[in-house]
């Protein structure tokens, strides 16, 4: 996560292996985890539930969005209550100042607005985006990650990581290509 993105000070960022399809990527993830590597990341051109389940990813976004929605509802109703009851009370033929039924729609709209904005901004923030530069962008093969190739990365700060061993291990999985990612 972006606030935990402590600098990797090794000259190597990790080792990247390229696979032709999702099935071989999944197999590689299982073997790599079985070999004891923990700091892994996979790159796919489409969302794949099995890949992030295999890597053990689970986001906290839904809770954040719920909070955003609740804040939106409170802001929406609070604003109308404050305006109509506290700040500028207007007596219209003795009708109640807190005419809550007519405040529901704006409360609802602001609930949706705040929740949706939290979903988008929260997703980007948790993903550490925008981030225009990244060491992986230095790898020529990685351009295919947004088209039709599937990648597995073992990160250099994995406790088991040793460049020679990790490279040798990944090459046994028969990748299409194998690159050492410099920490650029």
């Amino acid at each position: 996560m972006f606030w935990r993105d402590h600098k990797i000070d090794t000259p190597c960022f990790g080792v990247l292996a390229e696979f032709p399809d999702g099935a071989s990527l999944l197999e590689a993830i299982e073997k790599t985890r079985a070999a004891g590597y923990e700091k892994l990341e996979a790159y796919t051109p489409l969302p794949m539930h099995d890949v992030w389940h295999a890597l053990g990813h689970k986001s906290r976004l839904p809770e954040l969005v719920l909070c955003g929605g609740i804040v939106g509802a409170l802001v929406g109703f609070g604003m109308q209550y404050f305006a109509s009851v506290v700040h500028y009370p207007l007596n219209v033929g003795g009708r109640p100042l807190n005419s809550w039924p007519s405040f529901i729609i704006i409360t609802f709209e602001l609930t949706i607005l705040f929740a949706a904005a939290t979903a988008v901004l929260g997703m980007l923030a948790l993903n550490g985006l925008p981030r225009p530069h990244h060491p992986l962008f230095e790898i020529d093969e990685f351009e295919q990650a947004s088209a039709d190739r599937f990648f597995l990365l073992i990160l250099a700060h994995d406790p088991l990581f040793e460049l020679g061993n990790a490279t040798a291990f990944l090459s046994e999985l028969a990748p299409l290509s194998l690159s050492e990612v410099p920490n650029a």
């Binding site: 990341e41 996979a42 790159y43 796919t44 051109p45 969302p47 794949m48 890949v51 992030w52 890597l55 990813h57 689970k58 986001s59 980007l124 993903n127 985006l129 925008p130 981030r131 225009p132 530069h133 990244h134 992986l136 962008f137 990685f142 990650a145 947004s146």
Partner: peptide, 11 residues
């Protein structure tokens, strides 16, 4: 925005 298709990002 620097999207690179990481599994964690996709999730």
């Amino acid at each position: 925005l620097g999207w690179r298709g990481a599994a964690r990002h996709w999730e």
